[in-house]
Design a protein around this nucleic acid. Structure first.
Lengths: 164, 164
DNA sequence: AAAGATTGTTGTTGACGACAACAATTGTCG
DNA sequence: CGACAATTGTTGTCGTCAACAACAATCTTT
């Protein structure tokens, strides 16, 4: 079948081509409905904003949280390894770590095995801070549950498990 | 229950704190697994890239596609209405429309009813182009199906229907 | 008519991904 | 061993994108 389906009916228009709207949100999305990418993008924006808001007091953004979590679970990793695992660019991770190191959450230890690379570790302060971040992140996760439902959230995680 | 779960075991480390890795991707994500936001973000990146690649020949990005689709289905909308419907900022939409108008896909018609606003329409060229874009977008959608499965894609759309 | 709100526009800021270049170091291979 | 290639962290540039703020022109309200 060809993809060009029925055009959703253009609404009542006045002579020149302007359209009267009751102001409400009854604008057709047409082909956009049925596009997974569109739904995912809107959802991702919502999630992102809720995360930033929930972790607003501690000033931690999703990417920072992911970096801290991976370092916490795998102390001693190189920057290259962290970048590859999280799908972040080397160059980008440099700035992220600069920021986290300034805040005394992470330290770069010069590796003796390979003097090019840095072994990444949480500071003591970073470890306790991460524990707090995790509690807040769990709160955010409950917000997601409240938004889409407990079972739907689990379904979602199962469907997307391959992308982690 | 408190959210701070079991720490995933830090691996074998050498004296100074560096960690040997077989080089493979067996780095623990710890708390990241179980975060809907992380999975969604990775998935969104994959979808975005596939969309851009599939619509690469016609040089159309997801946001441009969404704008064209909405205008095509609702001719005469104002920029404000389109922006609000798609969750784009007014300011951002200005640049998007500048580009689409330069490419002769969209035209801004000065509305006589409200001389502040522009009524947005597809050009004839824009309409035929959009038909082609929709075919390519459908191809992209089949790629998504191939990636996560037909039923999973439908489940996903159902779960996220509220965000469109 | 005056005050306030809306629409499109311009500009700035900061997060982010994609690249390219570089020095220091390591690995490889003749 | 020694030249050459590859890797690691770093710096820088470019383009995309969201979030704001400010502005002129134009409604809308009172």
């Amino acid at each position: 079948m060809t993809a060009s389906a029925a055009q959703t009916s253009p609404r009542k228009r006045s002579g020149n081509g302007a359209v009267r709207r009751n102001d409400a949100e009854e604008i057709g999305l047409d082909a956009l409905v049925g596009h997974a990418g569109y739904a995912v993008r809107r959802f991702q924006i919502w999630i992102f904003q809720d995360f930033v808001r929930t972790l607003g007091d501690v000033d931690i953004r999703p990417t920072q949280y992911s970096v801290l979590t991976v370092i916490g679970a795998n102390p001693g990793l190189s920057q290259m390894a962290v970048a590859k695992r999280l799908g972040i660019e080397r160059a980008r991770l440099v700035h992220l770590l600069d920021s986290l190191e300034q805040r005394k959450l992470v330290k770069r230890v010069k590796s003796k095995a390979d003097r090019r690379s840095h072994a990444l570790h949480l500071t003591a302060q970073g470890a306790t801070a991460l524990a707090k971040f995790k509690r807040l992140a769990a709160e955010h996760e409950r917000n997601v549950e409240a938004k889409i439902g407990k079972e739907n959230r689990e379904r979602l995680l199962r469907i997307l498990a391959g992308f982690t």
